[in-house]
């Protein structure tokens, strides 16, 4: 872990949806961390005005790179710049990776249950990628709630993991608009219960999304009999 700000360079950008893109950042030295961690970005205007925001790491690309996925917020001050303006070769100040609580590594016991609301999928994707790369024998499920098919991040890669990794089940729930033949509507308690490992499997559960999403889903799971000590949450605000 690095405690001071260092300068990273944007080495690649990739659109995820119409309003979200992945930024690959290259560091001057080796950068390492664990799935679920985040970094702080500091942006400085010409006159010295600064803004600091936290973004979850989506992927680790050893030895010197990592990826973030940023979604543009309607009223955002920083995210529109990161999604629409920042270009390959630009520099950003970065602190981290940091955070030791909302993290998962393949040595953690128990089935892995990931539940994402919208862009809350980002840190969970880092966990899923780590699970796949380690060829983990631990069963894993991702329940990913999105507004519409156009809002799904990492579409191609999720399809590949879901089809090729026998330990992983990926379940995408659509709230506003769904592909043909798929149900559409707000995520319900019943749908969450049906998609998740049952309490007797003693899964470790990671929930990330808006505050409302996280509160609702965590309460349902505790209601279903999951031990609150095995549920870890991360709210991205809103």
């Amino acid at each position: 872990m690095r405690r001071s700000w260092q300068v990273a360079e944007v080495s690649a950008v990739r659109a995820e949806t119409a309003r979200a893109r992945t930024l690959r950042l290259r560091f001057p030295d080796m950068v390492a961390g664990v799935p679920g961690q985040h970094v702080d970005l500091r942006l400085t205007a010409d006159d010295g005005y600064q803004a600091v925001r936290s973004y979850s790491v989506a992927a680790w690309v050893p030895p010197r790179e990592l990826e973030l996925t940023v979604e543009e917020l309607d009223d955002g001050e920083v995210s529109p710049f990161l999604v629409d303006v920042l270009a390959v070769g630009d520099q950003l100040e970065v602190r981290g990776p940091v955070g030791g609580w909302f993290t998962w590594t393949p040595d953690r016991a128990g089935p892995l249950q990931l539940i994402a609301g919208g862009s809350g999928v980002v840190p969970l994707m880092a966990m899923l990628r780590s699970h796949s790369e380690a060829r983990s024998a631990v069963p894993a499920r991702l329940l990913y709630s999105v507004r519409s098919p156009d809002h799904v991040f990492y579409r191609g890669e999720l399809d590949v993991i879901g089809q090729e990794d026998p330990q992983v089940v990926i379940d995408i729930a659509y709230s506003r608009e769904a592909p043909d033949g798929r149900p559409v509507g707000r995520l319900t308690h019943e749908a969450v219960t049906a998609s998740c490992f049952p309490p007797e499997d003693e899964p470790v559960i990671y929930i990330c999304g808006s505050t409302g999403f996280v509160e609702a889903v965590a309460a349902w799971l505790v209601d279903d009999g999951h031990d609150a000590d095995r549920i870890r949450t991360e709210r991205y605000g809103g």
Binding site: M1, R3, V98, G99, G100, W101, F102, R232, T233
Partner: peptide, 23 residues
């Protein structure tokens, strides 16, 4: 202490309940 402090278990001086700072 400069390792990840957010995982530290914190007891509230007000109500006595405990949990990680991260939660």
């Amino acid at each position: 202490f400069v390792s990840d402090l957010t995982s530290a278990e914190c007891m509230c001086a007000g109500c006595g309940s405990s949990g990680p700072l991260a939660a």
